[in-house]
Write a protein that binds this DNA or RNA. Structure first.
Length: 241
DNA sequence: CGTGGCCCCTGTGGGC
DNA sequence: TGCCCACAGGGGCCAC
């Protein structure tokens, strides 16, 4: 079933917290966008009816030029959530921790104080810090030389500081390189990411560590495939504490 | 509170 | 070539 909604709005701003986007109209209404695993926002010159899994599309006029914004999502794990005003966005975003690019080590240390969960689970959860997914948690823990199963509350202040530095560096570098294209990911203009070529551990289990040449291991942590270097990330003293 | 196992879906790649 | 299985950038829910 195709729906046509002849409602229009003037896009005033785009906001983001963690992995969620908000397209905010001048009248205050907003559309919250979560991409899930395979969701894409694409800006195209014309509608190509052979592209599959396009669940929503908008005609977009910018400086006299007509283009189309598409929401495409093969696996349909993403979602579009209409919000009537900014308060509605905030109520969705209140459950998210501070964004990964602005969170402080002190905030993380505070949130982890009584948490006995594995560090990886703590970082993926989105309630202490928002914006880190499976790739960037694994890559950041490698850089910080922390074991994914280290107990969240066991980190020293200096380790939190280092970890924050590591994931912010990782995210900024990936953004500069257009993200990680494993399969579906594209920038809104359809360009492939290049950061996947820089991964140290993600997707490299069985290969040699780029630093110490140990074999990169693969385990399931918190239900997610996890890659790490057993030598560089030898946090055995903190595991389970 | 923490953990593990489902579930939501489609597509792809490997083994036979 | 086809069939079956495992697995994939996320996240919610439920039983234990």
């Amino acid at each position: 079933m195709r729906h046509r909604l002849f409602d229009s709005a003037v896009l005033a701003s785009v906001k983001r917290k963690g992995k969620q986007l908000a397209l905010v109209a001048r009248d205050g209404r907003a559309l919250l966008v979560r991409l899930g695993m395979t969701g894409q926002l694409l800006l195209v010159d014309s509608i190509d009816p052979t592209i599959k899994h396009v669940h929503a599309s908008w005609a977009v006029r910018a400086s006299g030029r007509l283009r189309f914004l598409l929401f495409r999502d093969p696996r349909r794990f993403g979602s579009l959530i209409p919000c009537c005003d900014c308060d509605a966005i905030d109520s969705h975003w209140d459950t998210l921790g501070p964004d990964a690019l602005s969170v402080t080590a002190a905030q993380l240390a505070g949130a982890a104080k009584h948490r006995r969960v594995p560090l990886k689970v703590f970082l993926l959860d989105q309630s202490a810090v928002s914006g880190l997914g499976n790739i960037y948690v694994d890559e950041s823990l490698f850089l910080a030389r922390l074991h994914p199963r280290a107990c969240a509350r066991s980190l020293a202040d200096s380790e939190w500081k280092n970890l924050v530095t590591c994931f912010q560096k990782t995210l900024k570098k990936s953004i500069r390189m257009g993200g990680s294209t494993l399969r579906d990911y594209r920038t809104p203009d359809g360009v492939l990411g290049r950061f996947q070529h820089m991964h140290h551990v993600y997707g490299r289990s069985g290969e040699l560590c780029t630093v110490c040449k140990a074999v990169v291991e693969r385990e399931v942590v918190g239900g997610r495939t996890t890659s790490f270097c057993p030598m560089c990330q030898n946090g055995s003293t903190n595991v389970g504490k």
